[in-house]
Design a protein around this nucleic acid. Sequence first.
DNA 1: CATAATTGTATCCTTAAGCAACATATTATC
DNA 2: GATAATATGTTGCTTAAGGATACAATTATG
Lengths: 399, 399
Amino acid sequence: MKELTLLASSPRKIRQTNEIAALRALHRADRLSRADLARILNLNRSSSGHIIAELTAAGLVREVNEEKAARQTYSRAGRPGVMLELVPDAVFFLGIEIGVEHITATEIDLRAAIIRTRSEPFDGPAHGVEEAVRHAIALACSDLSPDRLERCEGIGISTPSQLNLNGTIHSAPLLGWKNVNLIELVRQSLPFQIPLMVENDANAFAIGAGYGDRPIHAGVTLFVVMESGVGSGILVDGILFRGGHGLAGEIGHMQVEGAPAKGRNLEQIVGLTNILSEYRTVTGRREATFEDFLADVRDRVPEAVSIAENWAKALAYALVQTCRVIDADRIVLGGSVAQLYPLVAARLAAHMQAAQDMNFPLPNVQLNAEANFGPAFGAACMLHQRYLSLESNRFSEED
Amino acid sequence: MKELTLLASSPRKIRQTNEIAALRALHRADRLSRADLARILNLNRSSSGHIIAELTAAGLVREVNEEKAARQTYSRAGRPGVMLELVPDAVFFLGIEIGVEHITATEIDLRAAIIRTRSEPFDGPAHGVEEAVRHAIALACSDLSPDRLERCEGIGISTPSQLNLNGTIHSAPLLGWKNVNLIELVRQSLPFQIPLMVENDANAFAIGAGYGDRPIHAGVTLFVVMESGVGSGILVDGILFRGGHGLAGEIGHMQVEGAPAKGRNLEQIVGLTNILSEYRTVTGRREATFEDFLADVRDRVPEAVSIAENWAKALAYALVQTCRVIDADRIVLGGSVAQLYPLVAARLAAHMQAAQDMNFPLPNVQLNAEANFGPAFGAACMLHQRYLSLESNRFSEED
DNA sequence: CATAATTGTATCCTTAAGCAACATATTATC
DNA sequence: GATAATATGTTGCTTAAGGATACAATTATG
């Protein structure tokens, strides 16, 4: 939680605020002239010029290569502006996902574009925290040259766990962890000082998926991740809503009722484990995969369709209950089980409509298209977001 | 929703920001010296002095009357600071609640202290919106002298209704309104221009109840109002969370399950109407009041206790479901039905404990003590809050 | 009573934004 | 094609506002 008092500004702080604002504007727009920037930030063109000069000197912004700019014709009269862009490789950020079955590391640049992603199998529950951290750091940093590492401005880590607001892990049942100060562990394994953040995997996923939106979606978005477990993250105007203890959006254990539910919770009905189990039972094929199931639903095989229908009904129930509380205007479904959604979208909508009051606006439900926007990417985005904020240590350093 | 871009600051904006910060600090602390303020705002003492000089000239701040200051002995060495305080009657704010059975108007001063509250019966459903507005304005403004009215810095109105984010009323079933631009109606009935805000009554209640906290409660608080209907408002670090369409916290229609519920929603079980109806049925007394019921629960009359037990169970269910989504760390119960809470607090806690996972921290549940902190007070607080923010029109005016 | 500590104010300094003017580059127009 | 119109980026000057320092005033401490 941030300071509740409005922070006072000093002359130097103004410049910092404006530089941040400029970087954010450039991130959103990709390319802007100094005059564009002045308009966006409500600044004088001369001030905009000064700010850009400072950012250019810092190596974060550059003028777009003229030859590359393809000499397009300009629509308006007047001298055309010189386009500016972020210097992608000025800095970079690492995101690591420590999962139950694998570890993934993602590198993003100043534009928040993915540089590369690497993943390796890792049996989380079989190893301890220290082992996991060692593997994760090795995967993320092993082949980075020292001078490149120096430009790393943060590492974010996501795990399937409940964390306290101070960043310590309260419990991670899937990994068998309890009361772990992951940040401290990582800090001690690193030969250098660097901003670190930890986040629940669903929350990290939400941040990553929301980071794709440009302009940032104004409003409340619920990102639901469905694998074996079900979690969700809530974004309010592009900012993660963490709740009072950092556990907001933990809807996996929400009670679902109605005909097929019988007092089970959301995860037990909608999660991959149950879907597979039900599908294998009705087909009698013990090796059947989720893809087989999807294919059968597509082919309108009655048994599969029936399972899908129950899935839609239970999910609709939980989504409506959730929207009664946070009034989301958009719901994004992710995780492998979400692939079922396009096949039953109409049914889900009908169930939601039936469950909700007439005059309560229903949220826009959509599938998270880009599969590589995983928790690792989201964890990296958290530090990108931090870098383009007043908490950035670009300032504390030079002070 | 606010601008997503970080606003750039200009020299003049700094002073405005700092003046706001000073006013907020004084509101929170009641009394501060210039040096105290400098420490709180991270400013130089000289800057603090300049800011206070400007605020004093504007008539918003004054030095505490020396004689009144009771000549207390000072603990520390050094020259004692001159205490500063807000000038209570520099400005004032009006809050109006248009309810189903009555209209209430509350006046608060710059310290957010109640000056007076007036209420009169009003049969909302029987009259139209225009009639309600006329009554409300008459009640609030009738005996205010013109020169006093000039110092009114805003009117807030709360109604039992669902509103859109732009402030128009989407529907108010209890009053029979639909698609009403209440702000516009009020503006047209006023002979002067003034900031106006509308809010749902549960949200207004939440703001008012949260405004009593000083220091502002950091975290997520759920304020539940239980009368005939059940509504709630969510405060995040003292700021109202409105949701994607302004309907966050509308938990009255949340589905509640379990033995006694049988597919009914929260309001139908926990609301005053149902409690009274059940109580009258079991006792056979058609005239029995809610106070009779409370007395019987206190006396452990089995039939009453059983109703109370079901009430606690259903409420616990809904609160746990809600906390899975927003992870509130505090829940405040208000409205007349909340008086039942102290009698079944232990049962409610037990039910919540049973419904929630072991390692999910339970929120602190408490009764809203001060009964006069109603929606009208909250509506007034909304404008107080606005006045002590950058949206204040103290600035747009003088520009 | 001397000293340390603290406050409020006055003076000077620094930072950074605004403003106006100007050179520059492009489109629009006759 | 020449000229006007328009937009951009830069430069020099002005202004607003916080910071630093010094100093007088006021209290506690030994």
